[in-house]
């Protein structure tokens, strides 16, 4: 199992990106920001394996099994595709795009992790077994990424409040 940044960092980064986009695009509401956050969470569905290990599922179903594809680009896109179908048709295109932004941020963040071999996981599996070189920035057990992401989240939240007050004053 490859190391991954903790879930909170991913979700905070999703929040920051979503809020940032909402400053830029007027149609983007808090409901949409939530979608970016969900997208940033999706690849970590692979942690189901802590509850239902690959071997256990394989024995139960009688077929070979691994949760690992959930943490690849293709697997995450299939998951958000399914998720998008839960939403009303009018929202699907944008929802998929926003979920995909979240998914992408997750994989980029995980590619910055420090790994012993200097290579990340096979993010493009099954299209390619290529393991991109890692950014060497932090370990999954480091806490400072969560702190930095938390500060950024606080900042965009303050900016959002400020914009809200300004808009209220103008009215």
């Amino acid at each position: 199992m490859v190391d991954v940044a903790d879930l909170l960092t991913h979700v905070l980064v999703g929040y920051v990106i979503g809020m940032g986009l909402s400053f830029r695009y007027a149609w983007l509401r808090p409901a949409h920001v939530t979608l970016v956050m969900i997208g940033a969470f999706v690849p970590d569905l692979v942690k189901i394996e802590l509850v239902a290990p690959d071997g256990l599922v394989a024995r139960t179903l009688g077929v070979p099994f691994s949760w690992a594809p959930l943490h690849t680009l293709v697997g995450s896109l299939l998951v958000i595709g399914l998720g998008t179908l839960l939403l009303a048709p009018a929202h699907r295109k944008r929802a998929f795009a926003l979920l995909a932004v979240g998914v992408l941020s997750h994989h980029v963040l995980d590619a910055l992790l420090l790994t012993p071999s200097g290579e990340a996981y096979a993010v493009f599996w099954p299209l390619s077994a290529y393991r991109p070189p890692v950014g060497d920035y932090y370990l999954s057990s480091d806490r400072w990424p969560a702190v930095v992401a938390g500060c950024c989240a606080l900042l965009v939240w303050l900016v959002a409040r400020r914009r809200e007050t300004d808009a209220a004053v103008r009215q």
């Binding site: 099994f65 594809p69 299939l78 071999s117």
Partner: peptide
């Protein structure tokens, strides 16, 4: 869902786990 399940099974059957080091 079929594609997703298929990929989970294929990954289980291949020796090269995408998340493991090569």
């Amino acid at each position: 869902a079929g594609l997703l399940t298929g990929s989970l099974v294929v990954a289980g059957a291949t020796a090269d786990d995408p998340l493991e080091s090569a």
